[in-house]
C-alpha cells in the first residue's frame, strides 16, 4: 500500500489524437453530434441563477430555452457528458499515477494570482463560448471534423487570440 504508483508517461500525441478521434467518431455515430463542454457550464449557471432569481432567469433570452416546456436545465446530454469527462479524467489520472492536489503555474507567479487569472480566463471563455456557440470541444474539435465553415473560422480565431494574448500573461507560465 505504501508503494507509490509510478507515474506513467503520456501517450504519444498522435496515438492520443487517434484515440480521441475514435471517441469523437463514436459520438457522431451513436448520438449524431460531437463532443462538448462549455454548454454544461452555461446550464449550470442557469440552474444556479434559477435558484436565486427564477423569474429573471426565465426572462434571459439566451438561457430561457434551457427551461422550455418545464425542462430541467441540468438534465441534458451535455451535462452528462461533462460528468463523464470528469470521471474519465479521474480514472485516467489515477491509473497513470498522476493524481496530485496541486496548482499548475509557472515559477514566477503566486498562487492567489494564478487563481485570479484562472477565474478571469474561465469567465472570458464562458462568455466567448456563448457568443461563438461552442468552445474548443464543441466548435473547434467536433465542428472541425464535420468540416463546418464557422468551426474552422473559430478554430483559427482561438489560436490567433491565444497567440496574441500569450505575451501579456507570459509571467504566469514561463
Amino acid at each position: 500500500m505504501d508503494i507509490a504508483v509510478k507515474e506513467k508517461p503520456y501517450w504519444n500525441p498522435y496515438i492520443a489524437g487517434f484515440f480521441l478521434g475514435l471517441v469523437l467518431l463514436a459520438s457522431f455515430l451513436l448520438l449524431g453530434w460531437g463532443l462538448g463542454a462549455s454548454g454544461a457550464g452555461s446550464r449550470f449557471g442557469a440552474w444556479l441563477s434559477y435558484l436565486v432569481v427564477p423569474d429573471h432567469t426565465l426572462g434571459l433570452a439566451s438561457w430561457s430555452s434551457y427551461f422550455e416546456g418545464g425542462a430541467a436545465p441540468l438534465k441534458d446530454s451535455i451535462v452528462f457528458g461533462a460528468v463523464g469527462v470528469f470521471l474519465g479524467g479521474l480514472i485516467g489520472a489515477l491509473t497513470a499515477g498522476r493524481y496530485k492536489v496541486s496548482v499548475g503555474r509557472g515559477p514566477r507567479i503566486s498562487v492567489p494570482a494564478r487563481f485570479a487569472l484562472a477565474l478571469l480566463g474561465g469567465t472570458m471563455m464562458g462568455f466567448a463560448a456563448r457568443l461563438g456557440r461552442g468552445c474548443t470541444s464543441g466548435q473547434a474539435l467536433s465542428g472541425g471534423a464535420e468540416l463546418a465553415l464557422g468551426s474552422w473560422v473559430f478554430m483559427f480565431a482561438v489560436f490567433g487570440g491565444a497567440y496574441a494574448f500569450a505575451w501579456f500573461v507570459r509571467r504566469q507560465w514561463l
Binding site: 508503494i3 504508483v5 491509473t95 499515477g97
Partner: peptide, 8 residues
C-alpha cells in the same frame, strides 16, 4: 496496488 486512490 495498481492505483493510489485520491480523496476524489
Amino acid at each position: 496496488g495498481r492505483v493510489v486512490v485520491s480523496a476524489a
